[in-house]
Design a protein around this nucleic acid. Sequence first.
DNA 1: GAGCACTGC
Length: 949
Amino acid sequence: MKTTSSMVSPKSSVLLAKRKRKIHKLLEDEDDDNVGREEGKISEAKSESMKGDSKKRQFRKKTVSFDDSESEEEMLKDQREKEELEKHIREKDEARTWKLTVHKLTQKEKEEEIRRSNALEKDDVRVLRNSSRHEFLKKTVDKKLIELGNYIEDEQYLFEGVKLTEAEKSDYRYKKEIYELLTKQSEEADNVNEYRMPDAYDQDGVVNQKKRFSAAMRHDRDRISDEKMNSFAEQELWEEHQIGKASWKYGSENKKQASDDYQFVFEDQIDFVKASVMDGDNVCYEEMDDSFQKSKAKSASEALLEERKKLPIYPYRDELLKALDDHQVLVIVGETGSGKTTQIPQYLHEVGYTKHGMIACTQPRRVAAMSVAARVSQEMGVKLGHEVGYSIRFEDCTSEKTIVKYMTDGMLLREFLGEPDLASYSVIMVDEAHERTLSTDILFGLVKDISRFRPDLKLLISSATLDAEKFSDYFDSAPIFKIPGRRYPVEINFTKAPEADYLDAAIVTSLQIHVTQPPGDILVFLTGQEEIETAEEMLKQRTRGLGSKIAELVICPIDANLPTELQAKIFQPTPGGARKIVLATNIAETSLTIDGIKYVVDPGFCKMKCYNPRTGMESLLVTPISKASAMQRAGRSGRTGPGKCFRLYTAYNFHNDLDDNTVPEIQRTNLANVVLMLKSLGIHDLIHFDFMDPPSVEALLKALELLFALSALNKDGDLTKVGRRMAEFPLDPMLSKTIVASEKYKCSADIISIAAMLSVGNSIFYRPKDKQVHADNARLNFHIGNVGDHIALLKVYNSWKESNYSAQWCYENYIQLRSMKRARDIRDQLEGLLERVEIELISNSNDLDAIKKSIASGFFPHSARLQKNGGYQTIKHPQTAHIHPSSGLAEVLPIWVVYHELVLTTKEYMRQITELKPNWLVEIAPHYYQLKDVEESVSKKLPRGEGRA
DNA sequence: GAGCACTGC
């Protein structure tokens, strides 16, 4: 088939080349064996895999029959695993090798996966192997279209952009034929399992894939413990249910069904339509319109009341109240839309729980707390901030009258500091507990603790389905209360084979949806800003090739750092005839909801921050998402109507390779802050603190060690006066220490500006792709005199202040206004807190050394020294590092520096750096650095003059 | 000479 290779046009794009490679491989394969031999091979492969299966079965039988010894075996296995893990960690002690191994691993895993899937697919129709992309098209393309022979047309759509040769086209058509055969069979087949294995050879009597697979599944069920099975089956059931619901909605006669769905939407608001909706009669449309008008004519409060009665939770009201009467802790399971967040606090209020204290309801996000509070105050007919209020950082919208209080979970945590028994509350409801944010996890421990000596305090833990058992176990087998949700069906599609390049696959899938699917917007989950940009480019490039043959595609990128005005674009309604495609990061998974999304493309990855306590280094790694996350993503397509989710991985991957839940944040973060907070609440034994998922002892010790070094704790591990002051600040302990230390150097006003700027993160400087040079120049203005990044940030803040907080100034200097506003808010808050810990507000911006010394007082554990090779090494725990290129000192290379954070990306980078005099270290932290640490290395290893002497 | 998932206090 080499002749075909020579036919590739030199003009071809990367995509084309890739696609062609696939097809060539395919053609080669076919060339090698004729059809008969092919079949022989396949059946051979099949019996091979059957053998494998029976082996597995035997193994399973064995484990089942030796039930009693299983726990012992498991313990042994656990032990072994633990040992292996420990060994593993030891081996990776050095951060550099650690990094490399991680990378190697993922590469290896990839290869492994491809190999495994290839093996699995030996029993697949060969020709279909390389066409997993077309799988979506084939699965979902309207059957009628095929009947009419119209598919030649959509084939042209596909071919247009990539200019295939005649041979390739005919190959495609051949595959299409096979596909048609397959569809026919699957239509005939009774129950379609989403684990759809190829049916092509059923009729040859070689093997019945479905039977084989369901047998395998049954064995799986035997093996898996009951507890696990429940969640497993639940998931499966959910998906099957959704698929079942969805599958009959599309097709030639879907019009009537679709109208049913619209009626379902209206059902939210209208009382008596239900029966006629069930009838599915068209007449009810008018009736509904009628009643819709009527309900509008009613007073607003009455309408609200009626709406409340429509919520799925309403029928359970009395049962729920009874349950809470009987039990102190209740786990509530309810999907979004069940009304639990808005209704439960109202129910509790109605029966008088608010007589003895407030009801608190915590949310992981600010906007959620605000909007829910607004809604509830409306429903209760009171003014927001009076009886119903919310409390979030920078904004306390409550009053003395407040009895129902929505708040962020972090805010309740702060309140613990002032009121360790939460005496002013009678009910605490932790909402969205399944998200397992850091604050939620700590709240669990604290709340469980106080519930022991406050039997009058009621606890409600509300979560989405998956974790309920776990929550119940944690809260001493609290009863679980289930409320049905209200959601539209979502059809889930998996790829047949793993995709090597998920970005490319995501683009192709989106285009396929665009071409073959009924109107509805598309949401694509990608991992980061850069990836979104490339995806946008690719989409534009490819749609350009298709010209006017396809409907307009509106591309909307979105990530958290995008300026607000650009973010607004995704909420604009899609123009008629066009289709919107939203390229989003994880932000769209929980934080924002976009209306009109009907299709979700889920490549199965996200970026996750991990903390290595050994090196104190954070890294942002692209990792596979969890099953829970995948479900959440899929659910995003079914918010306003039935939806479809296209997962760019196989069902096998989903069930076997993805974790059930994302690792809770508490296990992959720097705990210094958490430890300081718990210590200031008087909790001494942190190792035995009742965490739901305890963090590693190592991470705890590292945090304790740091706090001791910062003299926030004394030798006995008790909080010192410094520590108590530090705990007042909602900042990283090192930053808090910097502020506390600024008292001594009389520059507190400058330091809080810096602290505020540092805590808004990396989104201050705006650097658009097309104006990088200008942006970089603007940035250099703040680095004049090589003052270091901290002081540059101070300069930015002060200049902005001088410009009277002008937006224009930000624009001219390539600074993000939003970040600056946030910095101002934080600074204002810090100013208030300074007063509280009795530190005078003094500015001393001319004495840069004073400012630098304050910084060093907080960040001395983060000091590094220049090496001969131009890299740096940290002082106390030797560790190589480099200055991040974005730093103003990246080319200056001072000999001694302190850094704000150490991140692992392509190298170990220190971000936000300030120069330091080595003797300061001994002066500031004599308990941490001895003279010899500093002096010896100065005299012995002077760099060869490239730094500053 | 390289890069910023997402929250929250």
